[in-house]
Design a protein around this nucleic acid. Structure first.
Length: 298
DNA sequence: AACACTGGCAACCGCCCCCCA
DNA sequence: GTGGGGGGCGGTTGCCAGTGT
């Protein structure tokens, strides 16, 4: 017998996610945190496969995701990481915390692959590949060993500080996800104004039912833990948006620091609980910086 | 203005790895 | 030690918007 599918194919919805589904998912993760994906569809009532929920979260709703054009720095980073790591998109995403592996993969396949093919030697990448890749792999192995040791010591301290201060950090992190869906919500509210104007006219469609039943209740119970009261619907959505400016600011700050080489993914407040501690797979950003400096990129 | 083509991106699929009983 | 289940990852697909003819 083969392995059963992760979810029943019957009754599982496929295709693009609706804003309502996004809200349900984010609301659930705000309360329970990411993980245990198998239980997500059951507990939320989402007619989605657990994998689909995880992908939607990691690729779109996850906090701190930067969308839009890749910067030149990011592009160079991807090119070099691809040369170094191959098609290990998830590992590459560790060095570009604001980009998802899917984003990086798509960008590589649609832009960079073509660019390198047409352009040939871009920014010395080809010569780097032929001349220094082997050398870098050796240095990387050495670095990884050193860093593993140093980080394991450091993390034993960091974990203590994280555990004592995990709540605010988590709140900030999940708040940022609201920023990601806020744009969707804004569009959604434009198209379905009756849902968020306090039930002005009608508002008896299925979307309203879903929103009132699953999302608002979930959201309010979550916020109730903070504010202790249930605001009216439009204020509850406002509170979703109210996260945006702060988290956006933090996100930009983190980005600026990352770009300036002042902050590594490991000590970023925004991403610290999203970074996987798979030390064997990744090298701290400072090493990449060093490498980029060595090859004359910065 | 209408149609065809192309590129970009979100989402799905299936394999693999790791953890736990 | 082993098998099953869950999660992660990379490859691929399909839809949609933009652009060209």
């Amino acid at each position: 017998m083969g392995r059963p599918p992760c979810c029943d194919k019957i009754g599982v919805k496929k295709g693009p996610w609706t804003p309502e589904e996004d809200i349900i998912l984010v609301s659930y993760i705000q309360q329970h945190g990411p993980g245990n994906w198998r239980s997500v569809p059951t507990n939320t009532g989402l007619l989605r496969c657990s994998k689909s929920c995880r992908l939607r979260w990691t690729n779109y709703l996850r906090p701190g995701i930067k969308r839009g054009n890749f910067t030149e720095q990011e592009e160079k980073m991807i090119i070099h990481l691809q040369a170094l790591l191959g098609n290990r998109w998830a590992a590459m995403a560790n060095y570009l915390p604001q980009r998802t592996d899917n984003d990086i993969k798509n960008y590589w396949n649609t832009h960079l692959k073509k660019k390198l093919k047409n352009g040939g030697n871009q920014d010395g990448v080809s010569s780097f590949q032929s001349e220094t890749k082997g050398q870098w792999e050796r240095r990387l192995q050495t670095d990884i060993r050193m860093v593993k040791q140093a980080l394991s010591e450091a993390l034993s301290v960091d974990n203590l500080s994280f555990s004592t201060d995990s709540k605010p950090s988590q709140a900030t992190t999940y708040a940022s996800s609201a920023e990601n869906i806020s744009r969707l919500l804004e569009n959604w509210m434009k198209t379905t104004p009756e849902l968020v104007t306090g039930g002005g006219g009608g508002g008896t469609n299925s979307a309203d039912t879903v929103t009132q039943g699953s999302v608002i209740n979930g959201s309010s119970s979550n916020e109730g833990a903070i504010s202790g009261e249930t605001p009216p619907p439009h204020q509850r959505f406002d509170s979703f948006f109210s996260f945006s400016s702060k988290s956006c600011h933090e996100s930009v700050t983190a980005e600026q620091q990352l770009n300036a080489g002042l902050m590594t993914p490991e000590n970023s407040v925004v991403f610290q609980d999203e970074i996987k501690p798979s030390l064997g797979d990744q090298v701290p950003l400072t090493l990449i910086d060093k490498w980029l400096l060595d090859v004359g990129l910065f």
